[in-house]
Simulated scan of single mutants.
Amino acid sequence: MATPLMSLTWTDHLTGRQGFLVVDRLVRGVASGGLRMRPGCTLEEVTGLARGMTLKEALYYDPAGRYVPLGGAKGGIDCDPRDPEAYPLLVRYLRAMRPYIERFWTTGEDLGLSQDVVDRAAAEAGLVSSIQAVYPLLDDEAQARRRLADAFAVEVDGMGLDELVGGCGVAEAALTALDRAGVPYTETRVALQGLGTMGGATARFLSRAGLTVVAVADLKGTIANPAGLDVEALLAARDAHGTVDRAALRPGDRELPGDAWLSARAEVLVPAAVSYAIDAENQERVTARWIVEAANMPVRAEAEPPLAARGVTVLPDVVVNSGTNAWWWWTLFGDVGPDAEEAFAHTRRAMRALVGRMLARAEAEGITPRAAAHALAADRLPELADRFGWYR
């Protein structure tokens, strides 16, 4: 992995807890990447995520589009978001990172943090916005900010548009792979780890496309039903952290151990919660044909060769979960308006094209989809450098 442009570790003076910021690359002087909060978060993890953001941004480069991709960055805080100290810690972290956020790091929700919590803490830390560094790049800042605010106010069947676009992209990546393989949706079962922002929206889109969701895992364990779970009932019974109230389960639903999702009898496995969920040891339990990485870095590198040897295709996070990030910028720069159907249609078109190119290159060159995605991004990075210059 290339050395990032900037890497820092922050230690909170009150609790001794640590936070991290890694800027992998700048484009037009700005980098994009969310802020996560989880116990055990490390600088190494944040560095990998920042590199992934550089690749995600580059994959969406379209010289004809209003949105011009930014560089890649990521932030992380080593704390359980449910800890009573988590919110004040977040505010202190953002105060410490204020010079970077004001000048070149645009950030937002990621694992453990919702956008409304980030926005509230950013305001308390004295920031105009968590994405204010991008404002000088906009043609009409006031209009762009109104458009994004209007988009965040849109709800569809009880879920915010900002939550849904990511799941729409994940689902479309899975559906594209099924279509290329000629597998009918109605004969496809899905198991998910995580029913939070990304996992919940993904479950809804896949269920509505005709797939059968047979298992979902949350902090309390795995809920399974080989005949299919009632996805909408589970979504309605979630708390703010994606944990399902077991009172909502039907007679045929079973409660299984937390890791049972991994070996569920399903064609599609969607890790949509934590990083490093699938490693060299537990990959042996996977029976699915596809792993669709809705979370960031859920499959460890050492797990991919044995998975590939068993015919399991991993659709990589840099493509699969890139829809949310792209939608933010499409909306802010004016490629799409604050309308759900327009956002979903744009996301579906972009994801279909991107996954199609990735799988075609993987097949043509005999490489994994991840290697193909990285190659596609590597092709575009020099184009960005030629147009905007190198910033490291």
Rank of each mutant, 00 (worst) to 15 (best):
Y276T: 13
G108E: 08
D12N: 08
R25S: 13
L21K: 07
Y185Q: 15
D80I: 05
T243F: 09
K56S: 02
A227E: 14
V231E: 00
E255Y: 02
T9Y: 02
L211V: 00
N321E: 09
L138E: 08
Y93S: 12
A375I: 01
V117D: 05
A247F: 06
D245N: 14
D339W: 00
A201M: 09
I223P: 04
V128F: 12
R349G: 14
G158L: 07
A248H: 01
A174V: 03
Y276N: 15
V244E: 10
L49M: 10
A217F: 04
M6D: 14
R82Q: 15
A174W: 03
G389A: 10
K74Y: 07
V118K: 11
A86F: 07
L127Y: 11
A236R: 14
S129I: 11
A58K: 04
A217E: 06
A31S: 02
A174I: 06
A373H: 07
G16K: 06
T222I: 06
F152G: 06
P81E: 01
D24I: 05
T197G: 15
D78Q: 11
D119C: 12
Q18M: 12
E124S: 08
A340P: 02
M6Q: 14
A2E: 15
V244S: 10
G210Q: 02
G166W: 00
R28D: 04
D335L: 04
Q132N: 12
S32V: 13
D139G: 14
